[in-house]
Design a protein around this nucleic acid. Structure first.
Lengths: 350, 350
DNA sequence: CAAAGCAATGTTACCGGTAACATTACTGCG
DNA sequence: CGCAGTAATGTTACCGGTAACATTGCTTTG
C-alpha cells in the first residue's frame, strides 16, 4: 500500500485517474464513468471506486476534461468596479446562481475603461468561457468582434445597449433619470443641479445626465447647473467635496440631483456642516438606493434599483441558455429591470 | 482560403494553432514559439505568424497549455462576502496585482460558512490553482487536508491564524479590539456595550468580541453589555434595529462599541432619531474605517484597517512566491497589517 | 578545411481526461 | 438450445497545446 514506485521527486506528482483505476483494478474509463452519476456502472464497482477516490483524495483535473468535452464550465464576468455595492451585490447574486448551475465565475473589473475591457475579454477567451457577462458601457470595435467570434451567449448588463451583441438585462438610465427629474419638477423644483463624474464618457452616469437634461429642457427649464467632479465610481468623499462648494455651485439652486447615492450622502453631509437645511433650503436626491441613503438623516430620496435581482436574473437567463432544455429561440433578448422612484425626507413632500 | 473541408456543422469549430501553422507554412511548434516572446524564432517568421494570428483572430486555448505545462495560471480566491466594502476592495486590489503577474482570479464567497468554504475549495482544486487565498475563519478538517494536499502556496487573510496552513497576512482582531477598548477605558468610559452578529462562531467578529471582553475584565469592568443581532455581515439596518432598542440595551451604558462601522452608523442613526445625543449622552465606536464613518455626523471613531493594502500586499506576496526568483525560504510566513485607532466626533475627546 | 557551435525549425510524445466504438458475459425468448 | 439483446467494462483515438530532443544549414575557429 505504501509503496512508492515512481522515483519522480520533482513536483510531487498529482494523483491522476490512472492511479485510482489501478487501485480499483479497472480501466480509467470506468473511473470516469463512476464519477458521472448518470453513466452505466454497476453499483458495486462504483462504490469501490468512490471509496478509493475518497481515500486518495483524488480531485479530477478539469483542464483535461475541458479539452476533451469542449465545455470549460466557465462564465466570464466583467463589472466596472467592485468598489461599489451595487456591482458587488450583483456579482455575488450571480455567483450564487452560477454555483448551482455548476459554472465557475471568472471575474474581472474594467475600471470603466473600454481598453481594459478589451484586454480582459481577450485574456478570458483563452479559457473558452461558455457565457460572457459584461456591463454595457459601449465597447471597442475589437471587443465586439471578439465577443461575436467567441460564439457563446453574451449578456450585457445594467444599461439597455443601443446595438446589443446578444442578450441584455437592465434598464434605461436615461429614462430613469428623466423620470426622476420630471417628478422633481412636478414637485415644484425648478433650479435643479446635477452632480456626476468628470470622466464618464462611457458610463451609465452619462446616460443619467442626458436624461436629466432632456427632462429639464422639455419643461422649458435650464440644465446648466452641472457639477462634474471625481473619477468613476464617484465616492462619498467626492460628494462631500462638491457639497463644500455650495456657494459656488448651488447658491441659486433648489435641488441637487446626484448620479448616485454615494455622492448624495457626501453632499448632504457637507451641507449639514455648513448649516444648510435639507430639504428646507435645498433638496438632495440620489440614485441607486444604497443602504446608506435609507439611514442617513434626512433619509435620501432616490431611484431604487435592485442590484441583487439583476444578478439573480442574469443567472436564471444563463440557466435557460445553457442548462434547461429550453428552446433558445423562446428566450427573450432583453430583460427589463424595473426601477422605482422613492421619495424620502431629503425632498419636501410639497 | 475560404474552403471548408470539415463537414462538422455542429459547434462551429474554433480556430486552432494548427490552422495558424498551416496558413504560415510552418509547424505548430513554431507558432507556439512565436507566441512566447522569449523563444528563438527568426524575426521574419514571427512577424508573419503574428500577422496571421491577428487576421484569424486566433486565441490560444489555455486548457491545452495548462495540461502540458502543468501551470494553470489560476489564483483561487475566497472571501467571506462581497457585500462588504472591505472585502470587495481587497479583492479588487488583489485582482489588479494578479493581472500584472498574469494570473486569473477564481472567485468564490464562503458566506461565512466553513462547509461552503470546503465545497468551494474542492471545486476550485479541479482547476489546479497555483495559489490559494482565503480568509482565516477556522476551517473544517477536510478543508485543511485538501489545502495541504494541493501542494501550492496557501495564504490566509485578515486574521492571524492560530495554526497557519501556509502563509498569512492580516492582523489580530483580538488585539485590535482590545486596544480600542483599553483606549476607551482610558478616556473615561466604564459601561461599554458591545454590538456584534448573532452567528459569528467562526468570524473575526468573535475575535473582536473576545478582545473587548478581555480588556474590560483586565480593567476590572463588566463586559456583560452584549448585543447580538443580525447575520454576518451585519448591516446598517441591523445597527438601526439595535439602536432603536436603546432603553432596553443601552440605558445604563456610556459607550457602544460596534463590531464594524456599518452597524455603528445604523446605531448612530437610530440614536439621533430618538434625540439621544452622541457623544454627550453616549459614545459610538465602529471598526474598519468604512467611508461612511468619515462623513456621518458626528463622524465615527473607529479602528482603521487598510483593506486595499491587504489585497495589494497579498498580490506582492504571490509575486514573490511564484514569479520572482526569490529564495522561497526568505519569504516571511506572516505579514502584519497595521491598524490605527482613529478618534473622531462620536467619542468625547476627554 | 574539418570539427564544433549555434540559430532556426521540425518531430515525437505526452499532459489527463472523455467520446465513440468494441468486446464480453449474461439474460430472456422463440 | 441458439441467437438476439443488453448491461458492464475495455480499447483506441483525440482534444490543443508544449517539453524534449532531433535535424538542418550556416558560421566560426584552430
Amino acid at each position: 500500500m505504501s509503496r512508492n514506485n515512481k522515483p519522480d521527486n520533482k513536483p510531487a506528482a498529482q494523483i491522476t485517474m490512472e492511479d485510482v483505476a489501478r487501485a480499483a483494478g479497472v480501466s480509467r474509463m470506468t473511473v470516469s464513468r463512476a464519477l458521472k452519476s448518470d453513466s452505466p456502472v454497476s453499483p458495486e464497482t462504483r462504490a469501490r471506486i468512490l471509496k478509493i477516490v475518497r481515500k486518495l483524495n483524488y480531485v479530477p483535473d478539469q483542464s483535461a476534461g475541458t479539452l476533451s468535452t469542449r465545455r470549460s464550465g466557465f462564465a466570464a464576468t466583467l463589472v466596472p468596479s467592485l468598489n461599489n455595492l451595487h456591482f458587488a451585490e450583483s456579482v455575488q447574486a450571480l455567483n450564487e446562481q452560477l454555483e448551482q448551475i455548476g459554472l465557475q465565475m471568472l471575474l474581472g473589473h474594467t475600471g470603466y475603461s473600454a481598453e481594459r475591457e478589451e484586454r480582459l475579454i481577450e485574456s478570458m477567451l483563452k479559457r473558452r468561457p461558455e457565457v460572457i457577462v459584461l456591463p454595457f458601457d459601449g465597447h471597442t470595435p475589437r471587443t465586439i468582434k471578439l465577443l461575436k467570434q467567441a460564439n457563446v451567449p453574451v449578456i450585457e448588463q445594467w444599461e439597455v445597449p443601443s446595438k446589443p451583441v446578444g442578450y441584455s438585462i437592465g434598464f434605461s438610465n436615461w429614462q430613469a433619470a428623466r423620470k426622476m427629474t420630471s417628478a422633481l419638477i412636478e414637485r415644484g423644483y425648478r433650479n435643479i443641479a446635477f452632480v456626476s463624474e468628470s470622466e464618464d464618457a462611457w458610463t451609465r452616469g452619462a446616460a443619467r445626465r442626458a436624461g436629466f437634461e432632456d427632462a429639464m429642457q422639455s419643461a422649458g427649464l435650464s440644465a446648466h447647473r452641472m457639477v462634474r467632479y471625481g473619477k468613476p465610481p464617484i465616492s462619498i468623499e467626492d460628494g462631500y467635496h462638491i457639497g463644500s462648494g455650495y456657494k459656488e455651485h448651488f447658491a441659486d439652486a433648489d435641488c441637487i440631483f446626484c448620479v448616485s447615492d454615494a455622492p448624495a450622502f457626501g453632499v448632504l453631509s457637507a451641507l449639514k456642516s455648513q448649516q444648510i437645511r435639507v430639504p428646507e433650503d435645498i433638496a438632495v436626491v440620489g440614485f441607486g438606493n444604497f443602504e446608506v441613503s435609507r439611514f442617513s438623516s434626512p433619509t435620501i430620496s432616490t431611484v431604487e434599483v435592485d442590484a441583487r435581482g439583476l444578478g439573480r436574473q442574469t443567472g436564471e437567463l444563463i440557466r435557460r441558455l445553457l442548462v434547461d432544455g429550453t428552446d433558445i429561440a423562446s428566450v427573450p433578448r432583453h430583460i427589463e429591470i424595473d426601477v422605482r422612484l422613492s421619495f424620502r425626507e431629503s425632498t419636501s413632500s410639497m
